[in-house]
């Protein structure tokens, strides 16, 4: 009985991973950025870069999203919102921090209204550097995340065959 449940669970998880790798939906949240990173994220959706060919779609609501793309340092006023957006996302969820600000506070280190960088507030999976990163770099970051998911899938399979 327990075994059956376990098998069912594994199958479900496999389906989930498969679906995510094929078509993750992303949401973008700006927690205090200068806009530079945001327009580059938007540029990745447009014909020259076309992020959608990887099946990635920018989505409006956190409840439908798998990936949270964060830009900017975290301001005091946006901190709670960032946390709330993250909490509203269904599991499993991933976070990509885009830009120097999101990684370290960047040029705004020491400003009085800055709490810090993204991973002081929520956990981050992929960091994309640059001020702002080129759209290619952002795409690379997303693809790296997908590879990471794929890898975790492979590992799980390997663990299973070893059993």
């Amino acid at each position: 009985m327990i075994k059956l449940e376990q098998a069912w669970h594994d199958a479900l998880r496999q389906i989930k991973t498969w679906a995510q790798i094929n078509s993750p939906w992303a949401i973008h949240f700006n927690s205090g950025s200068c806009n530079g990173c945001d327009i580059e994220i938007l540029a990745t959706l447009t014909p020259r870069y076309d992020l959608e060919r990887f099946g990635i779609k920018l989505q409006g609501s956190p409840r439908h999203a798998d990936i949270l793309i964060c830009t900017g340092p975290v301001t005091r006023q946006a901190r709670e919102r960032l946390r709330r957006v993250y909490e509203q996302m269904p599991e499993p969820k991933f976070v990509i921090a885009v830009g120097s600000c999101a990684i370290s506070g960047g040029a705004f280190q020491g400003c009085y209204n800055i709490v810090g960088h993204i991973d002081q507030v929520i956990p981050v999976d992929v960091y994309v550097l640059g001020c702002p990163p080129r759209p290619e770099a952002i795409i690379d970051g997303v693809v790296k995340l997908l590879q990471k998911l794929e890898l975790s899938k492979d590992e799980r399979q390997r663990a299973k065959t070893n059993e």
């Binding site: 700006n30 927690s31 205090g32 950025s33 900017g72 340092p73 301001t75 006023q77 946006a78 919102r81 705004f108 020491g110 400003c111 009085y112 209204n113 800055i114």
Partner: peptide, 11 residues
């Protein structure tokens, strides 16, 4: 407003 207020003038 103010979600993106970083305090640049002071900085």
């Amino acid at each position: 407003l103010g979600y993106v207020h970083r305090g640049i003038e002071k900085a």
